[in-house]
């Protein structure tokens, strides 16, 4: 089977995010970018399926500006077989991404799409669910274990109360959670080999998708600065403050 994995180029998780002075968004100029960590987990899972012989091909898809090719190269270096770059400088909302994924899925016919449960930039947590709905496929979100059966998959989901296990029919959309696996490092020789793997370029129009945003951002602002704490003299004082001032116990 084929596995399709979308990978998003986001601000690196180590970078301290700064809001633009005009409040229109966050600073991305000269900021280190890398693959959304949940997407790394998705790629790792797909590559492991391939190594086990249950998947034949892993296709990575990235949507966005030219630099997304670097994100795709990372996916290829980790073991994906080929890349698809939907090139656009437009702002992409989850719905537009989901529509484009649907169009690509219809063409490529994967049995599974593994989507990161959310991207660490906008934390939407929508793309996987929307893609499944648009395709009319089964979905299993927040996966910490994926076991493939004959035309089915057993997925363990991380939910508030604990773990839930669901059986789903393939084709399906699964979203990856943090504990699904620990993604590998791309080795230097594999980074070199990735140069020779193909990346196909297309644009939103060729997929028949209108990417015009439906949400308008009014203002982006810094979270309030943390107030300094106070030192307490004794356990009694601490308990009394927790009861009377913080009112948490």
């Amino acid at each position: 089977m084929k596995v399709l994995v979308p990978v998003k180029r986001v601000i690196d998780y180590n970078v301290k995010i700064r809001v633009k002075p005009d409040g229109s968004g966050v600073e991305t100029q000269n900021v280190k970018m890398s693959m959304n960590p949940f997407d790394e987990i998705s790629i790792e899972e797909a590559v492991r399926m391939k190594e086990k012989g249950v998947a034949e091909e892993v296709i990575a898809v990235s949507m966005g500006p030219q630099q997304c090719q670097e994100t795709l190269r990372t996916a290829l270096a980790m073991g994906a077989d080929r890349g698809i770059h939907v090139k656009t400088d437009d702002v992409l909302e989850p719905l537009a991404v989901a529509k484009m994924l649907k169009a690509i899925a219809e063409k490529e016919q994967p049995q599974m799409i593994i989507v990161g449960k959310q991207a660490i930039d906008d934390d939407c947590n929508q793309t996987g669910q929307m893609t499944a709905a648009l395709l009319g496929w089964s979905q299993a979100t927040f996966a910490s274990v994926i076991e493939l059966g004959e035309g089915t998959a057993k997925v363990t989901r991380e939910i508030d109360g604990g773990l839930e296990t669901v059986d789903i029919k393939l084709p399906a959309v699964v979203t990856s959670d943090l504990r699904l696996n620990e993604p590998r490092y791309a080795s230097l020789p594999n980074i070199m080999k990735a140069k020779k793997k193909p990346i196909e370029e297309m644009d939103p129009a060729s997929l028949g998708v209108d990417t015009t945003p439906r949400v308008k951002t009014l203002k982006v602002s810094e979270p309030p600065k943390r107030q300094g704490g106070v030192k307490v003299e004794s356990v009694q004082e601490l308990v009394s403050k927790l009861v009377n001032e913080a009112k948490v116990i």
């Binding site: 490092y185 230097l188 980074i191």
Partner: peptide, 17 residues
Amino acid sequence: LDPETLSLLLDATRRLV
């Protein structure tokens, strides 16, 4: 190397370090 590959190599190295 093309700049893209070099930057991936350096990123991977930094991460290992």
